[in-house]
Nucleic acid binder design. Structure first.
Length: 532
RNA sequence: GCGGGAAUAGCUCAGUUGGUAGAGCGCGACCUUCCCAAGGUCGAUGUCGUGGGUUCGAGUCCCAUUUCCCGCUCCA
């Protein structure tokens, strides 16, 4: 591929800018940092919040068929049982005793008991080390023959599978790995009852697997989970929302907020982290209309990503194929963005049939039907149609979106003097500051006073503005280029005479003189239209 | 999780065979300066990621650990 060597460099520059200018910091940095946890600095919180506000405006405020809500992060554990997250989200993980690889037992290569299990290591050196280990494991009876980096002599055990990496049948016990963060609700620490249960189990001569079950059972009464997605909150409250709002299907419920997943691997800065922020909407439709609304929301969502400034050519849909498709979905598309490391998911748009509401009906025993008195029941042909709504879900990542916006906005430009300028070409509505007010020089008290006066007008108008008189004017322009401030207003001696100021445009650095009075309006217009 | 690389000032990095911690940029004050990181003077900033070990002495060597990056793997 063509341009890969440059890409990690670009990512590093963005990470560096994020720290330097106060967008994103490593969490708990003074203690050595915490894996995959990031804090948003003064610029980052504005950017992320602006992005999320744009989503909310687009999805909720500006239309009549979607309403919002905010559910709690910790919900009744049965929610996750019904949704399938407790069982499906749990994977049996196994460690290879020879090559240390950790893999999912259910995805490992199958091999019947007694079959020869050749073991292939990455290179000869590792193979020699593994050879010694294998001899130990096989004991007296076994013979090991090494052929380059491949070892012969082992046979598959009763597991029915071998190591996904090297082919070894010598594996640790299967351990369940659940993607959800578990914690306990209530003031009583469950560890005491776990110890008691296990102690009794040991006395009774229970196996490891049985002891584990006993421990789980002892923890169960207080176990709760941090939500791995916001979606379930909308499903569980479907009826309350629908009835309290007297809203008719088709309609949607939207929610933004934090979700948590114990990711096995985290990568790409804030792209994949254990704690992340989602913007999800569940759109409830009559049976059979899922595909129609899937198309509709695909269009809506891609146009939204474009409207906040992501380049058209860096956005695309990827259709989930048969194998990838979740068992309940009859159609899913990812909105992908071309990040510096390649195409990756920004949002998933899924037609989920009536899986979710049905699951919660079965789990809770409560009816989650919708009754449409105006429609005709297709089965009986009689007026009045009672059904479990189907769902189309556009589920976007706010954290990922923020990173995509940063990547898309980052530009390096060489000016006429050969100096490199770094500029974040953010959509004005996303920019942390909308305008910087800059007296040309600090020494002139009149310029300073006038500058503060102008800044005050912006604060009065509720526009995020920044007054600055430190450093030379060039440095201030450069700093605001780097944080994406679309406009700089400069007050000079002429301003004192004729009441005009210089407005400098971030993207092309052009300057114009405008009457001081119209400054606020110019910025407001840009926020409305999105154009500088 | 595996394999590879890395961690020194806010940022980018130098630091020789182990011998008192450096540069550029940035930051602060002052001077100069009326438009794009200018110049001058002065100044502040480091547990050399963390914890052990070897040594008379460790940024440098060894072990462990944390974090980041790259490649696999994983992502209901």
């Amino acid at each position: 591929m063509s341009s890969e060597s440059k890409e990690p460099e670009l990512m590093q520059k963005i990470v560096s800018l994020c720290k330097r200018r106060g967008f994103v910091f490593q969490s708990s940095e003074i203690y050595g940092g915490l894996k995959s946890a990031y804090d948003y600095g003064p610029m980052g919180v504005e950017l992320k919040r602006n992005l999320m506000n744009e989503w909310w405006t687009f999805m909720v405020t500006s239309r009549e068929d979607v309403v919002g809500m905010e559910s709690s992060i910790i919900m009744h554990p049965s929610v996750w049982k019904s949704s399938g997250h407790l069982s499906n989200f749990t994977d049996p993980l196994v460690d290879c005793l020879l090559c240390q690889e950790r893999f999912r037992a259910d995805k490992a290569p199958r091999l019947a008991q007694g079959q020869p299990a050749p073991i292939t290591l990455a290179d000869k050196g590792r193979a020699k080390l593994a050879e010694e280990k294998l001899k130990e494991l096989l004991g007296e009876g076994g013979t090991v023959k090494r052929d380059g980096s491949t070892l012969h002599g082992a046979v598959a055990g009763d597991r029915g599978y071998v190591c996904a990496n090297c082919g070894s049948p010598f594996l640790s016990a299967e351990r369940d790995f659940n993607g959800m963060f578990r914690t306990s609700l209530g003031p009583v620490d469950p560890i005491k009852s776990v110890i008691d249960a296990v102690r009794q189990g040991v006395a009774d001569g229970k196996t490891d697997r049985e002891l584990r079950a006993l421990a789980e059972e002892a923890m169960a009464p207080s176990s709760v989970y941090l939500r791995p997605e916001t979606a379930q909150g909308m499903f569980v409250q479907f009826q309350n929302v629908q009835q309290s709002q007297a809203i008719k299907v088709p309609f949607g419920i939207a929610q933004m907020g934090k979700s948590f997943r114990n990711e096995i691997t985290v990568e790409h800065f804030i792209f994949r982290s254990c704690e992340f922020e989602q913007m999800e909407m569940e759109f409830f439709v009559p049976p059979g209309e899922g595909p129609k609304y899937l198309d509709y929301w695909k269009d809506q969502r891609i146009s939204w990503w474009q409207s906040i400034g992501l380049s058209k050519e860096k956005l695309s849909f990827r259709k989930h194929d048969e194998a990838e498709l979740a068992h309940y979905s009859d159609g899913t598309f990812d909105v992908e963005y071309e990040f510096p490391w390649g195409w990756d998911e920004l949002e998933g748009i899924a037609s989920r049939t009536n899986y979710d509401l049905t699951a919660h009906m079965n789990g809770s025993g409560k009816k989650l039907h919708y009754f449409d008195p105006e429609a005709t029941d297709p089965e009986t042909g009689k007026p009045g149609y009672r059904y479990i709504p189907h769902v189309v879900e556009p589920a976007a990542g706010a954290t990922r979106g923020t990173l995509a916006v940063l990547c898309n906005a980052y530009h390096e430009e060489v000016d006429e003097k050969g100096e490199t300028r770094v500029v974040l070409k953010l959509h004005p509505r996303l920019a942390p500051y909308k305008v910087a007010v800059l007296p040309l020089v600090k020494k002139d008290e009149q310029l300073v006073a006038r500058g503060r006066q102008i800044a005050e007008r912006f604060f009065q108008a509720g526009i995020a503005a920044r007054y600055e008189d430190q450093n030379t004017i060039g440095k201030r322009y450069a700093r605001h280029d780097e944080i994406g401030t679309p406009y700089c207003l400069t007050i000079d001696s002429q301003s004192l005479e004729d009441g005009t100021v210089t407005i400098r445009y971030r993207d092309d650095r052009r300057q114009e003189r405008i009457p001081l009075e119209s400054a606020v309006e110019v910025v407001q217009a840009a926020l409305r239209t999105g154009k500088l």
